[in-house]
């Protein structure tokens, strides 16, 4: 306990004594976390937007033209019983015709001729999935149901969504790793100056029998404190700027929305605190390593 108090007081004394270096190292952590924050928010939003697009994705199953409405409706349990089917919405041929009329109002009169037995449209099921990656599997199973004439599946669009999401997530993950690596490198070099200023002290500590961890702890705490401060500072611009982007997006691009800051707040705070502290602590550990070889 006394040793802990000692480490903490040494760490704060070190922070104050080398305050210019401490400010520089903290600024580096802030910069790294800002970049990390951008990559993180981008990654989450890519997943979020692609989920929305996936949610809008539907398979259309057309019922055999010879089936009456009751027979067609009876197919619903078979379709919904297929794995990965979230819901199967039945659209009768009459409803389908009305929808078409609505979308083509200027030619409404032409549709009057198609009512009743002349209706060329089939009864349809609009099917949504729990996992769009399983679309091909689901389509095969739907085709096996007796009474289903044809199944339409925009697999090209789907593949594009899935591959774009995966690619973007990979890029943002690689980006985050690169920022973390560069961050540790820059911070370790900044802290190294503070360590070098105390190299004489470290050497004496080693000679009088201090353990490596006795020497490391104050520096690790120093780095961690810088990480904590850096995380708090970096969170402020990220939350303000991103909050404004979300509001602007809502008004300008209403087709799909971005994740609200309130949904991201916890994860951003946790990631910033954890990564900030780790950057500071690892930076300190790396910079002190050489000086312990006495």
């Amino acid at each position: 306990m006394r040793a802990c108090k000692n480490y903490i007081s040494q760490a704060f004394a070190g922070l104050w004594k080398n305050r210019i270096m401490s400010v520089m190292a903290t600024a580096t952590i802030v910069f790294c976390l800002l970049l990390l924050g951008i990559a993180l928010i981008l990654g989450f939003n890519i997943s979020y937007v692609s989920k929305q697009l996936e949610g809008q994705y539907e398979i259309h199953a057309y019922v055999d033209m010879s089936y009456g409405i009751d027979e067609a409706k009876a197919l619903k349990p078979s379709i919904e019983g297929i794995e990965y089917v979230a819901a199967a919405e039945f659209v009768s041929k009459e409803e389908a015709l009305k929808d078409m009329e609505k979308s083509m109002e200027e030619s409404a009169s032409a549709f009057e001729m198609l009512e009743g037995d002349e209706n060329p449209l089939p009864h349809t099921y609009n099917i949504t999935l729990t996992d769009v990656r399983k679309a091909d599997e689901v389509v095969t199973k739907i085709k096996e149901i007796e009474g289903i004439e044809e199944v339409k599946n925009r697999s090209d669009v789907l593949e594009k969504i899935v591959s774009t999401t995966r690619g973007a997530q990979m890029v943002s993950l690689i980006g985050m790793l690169i920022f973390a690596f560069v961050g540790v490198f820059i911070i370790s070099n900044t802290i190294k100056m503070s360590v070098m200023a105390r190299s004489c002290e470290i050497e004496i500590m080693k000679y009088v029998g201090a353990t490596d961890w006795y020497i490391r702890w104050p520096f690790v705490i120093e780095g961690t404190v810088m990480g904590l401060i850096g995380a708090v500072i970096a969170y402020i611009p990220v939350s303000v700027v991103y909050g404004n982007i979300v509001s602007w997006w809502k008004e300008s691009i209403p087709m799909f929305s971005l994740m609200a800051m309130s949904e991201l707040r916890h994860i951003v705070i946790i990631v910033f605190l954890v990564i900030g502290c780790l950057l500071g602590a690892f930076g300190s550990l790396i910079s002190i390593r050489k000086h312990l070889r006495v």
Partner: peptide
Amino acid sequence: RRNIAALRRSMGMVFQDFRLL
């Protein structure tokens, strides 16, 4: 290496240049 601290605690070192903080 981890026993170096214990070794050095078992002795006292005096240096030409004093090595005081």
